[in-house]
């Protein structure tokens, strides 16, 4: 069915207000729009890894989520969700659960790229019928903006401060989406927020309604950690896409597809400039950092284009 934005927006809210995410938080926008893609009559059960999203959405007794929801720890959303899905298979077989359920796990880049990486990999490999959604904000935001393996090179974080000797994070960003593709699971999608949320909505639908494990990586900016004006969320995600820093693509049963190709690939400065975490890269004498960053973006983009041919 063709995407109908107004129909999607007309669905009842599954993510209530009154949570304690920061003003302008990308994780809140991510959660609302992922949930909006699910058919309103469908039952879902959600696992949330420890992180901003978890801490802000269930501070006892104020639960934000309208569906059944569980948090147990930081590094185990994959395994917890897998256990839940195994329970569903057992109870359905034994006639104790009659309704259909879909299973979603949410984790930040800390809970997905790093501490929860093994648990995520295990759950995907074991073929649980579930969707793992990583909301990637490129650092450990809940503990105060420390670097993660998802943090880009040169980024100024509280554990990779840009100093006079070390220019921010020394290492490149890990590509978790590609690692998930390497698990040979039925569906992997990479997306972020664009005006009518079509890309995110359609990828979520595919992820949820494809049988078997699926992985969704959503770039979800953090105004505090990235140091941009909180109203500028859409400008930042657009720049991430238009510079090809965060390409929109999906892999269905091994087949790569670009879901959006910029008409004119913008220089990486368009993405870096508005963000305080990259400010040092624009100082005189640091031009090489921007060049290096651009090279890395170009390399990854070319590799992706080849896969999408």
């Amino acid at each position: 069915m063709a995407y109908n934005f107004k129909e999607e927006m007309n669905k009842p809210e599954r993510f209530a207000g009154g949570h304690r995410l920061c003003a302008g938080c990308g994780a809140g926008v991510m959660a609302r729009n992922v949930l909006r893609a699910i058919d309103e009559d469908d039952n879902i059960a959600i696992v949330n890894a420890t992180g901003c999203l978890q801490a802000a959405t269930f501070s006892y007794p104020y639960i934000t989520w309208e569906d059944s929801w569980i948090h147990s720890a930081f590094e185990n959303a994959g395994a917890t969700c897998g256990g839940m899905e195994a329970a569903y298979r057992a109870l359905e077989k034994r006639g104790k659960v009659k309704e259909k359920y879909k299973f979603l796990a949410f984790g930040g880049d800390g809970g997905s790229y790093d501490i929860g990486f093994q648990s995520l990999s295990g759950a995907m490999e074991r073929n649980h019928d579930m969707v793992y959604i990583c909301y990637d904000n490129e650092a450990y935001m809940n503990t105060g903006i420390q670097r993660s393996s998802s943090t880009s090179r040169f980024t100024d974080t509280t554990t990779t401060p840009a100093g006079s000797v070390v220019p921010g994070k020394p290492q490149n960003k890990k590509n978790l989406t590609e690692i998930m593709v390497a698990h040979s699971i039925p569906y992997v999608g990479q997306t972020t927020f664009l005006a009518n949320m079509k890309d995110l909505n359609e990828k979520t639908k595919k992820a949820v309604y494809t049988e078997g494990p699926a992985f969704l990586n959503v770039l979800a900016p953090c105004t505090r950690g990235w140091r941009y004006d909180m109203a500028d969320l859409l400008d930042i995600t657009k720049a991430a896409v238009e510079t090809c820093f965060w390409p929109l693509f999906e892999v269905e049963n091994g087949k790569y597809k670009l879901t959006y190709e910029p008409k004119k690939k913008l220089p990486i400065e368009e993405y870096l400039r508005p963000q305080g975490r990259f400010k040092h890269m624009f100082k005189k004498g640091n031009e090489w950092m921007i060049e290096e960053f651009q090279k890395e973006v170009d390399l990854k983009w070319e590799m992706l284009l080849k896969k999408c041919e």
Partner: peptide, 25 residues
């Protein structure tokens, strides 16, 4: 991010200020 712009019959209605944090997005 705060579910503060309700939709009724496919149309937005006025803000629910109880949860709006004023981000300006």
């Amino acid at each position: 991010p705060d579910s503060s712009i309700p939709v009724k019959d496919k149309k937005r209605v006025d803000f629910e200020y109880k949860h709006c944090k004023g981000c300006g997005i």
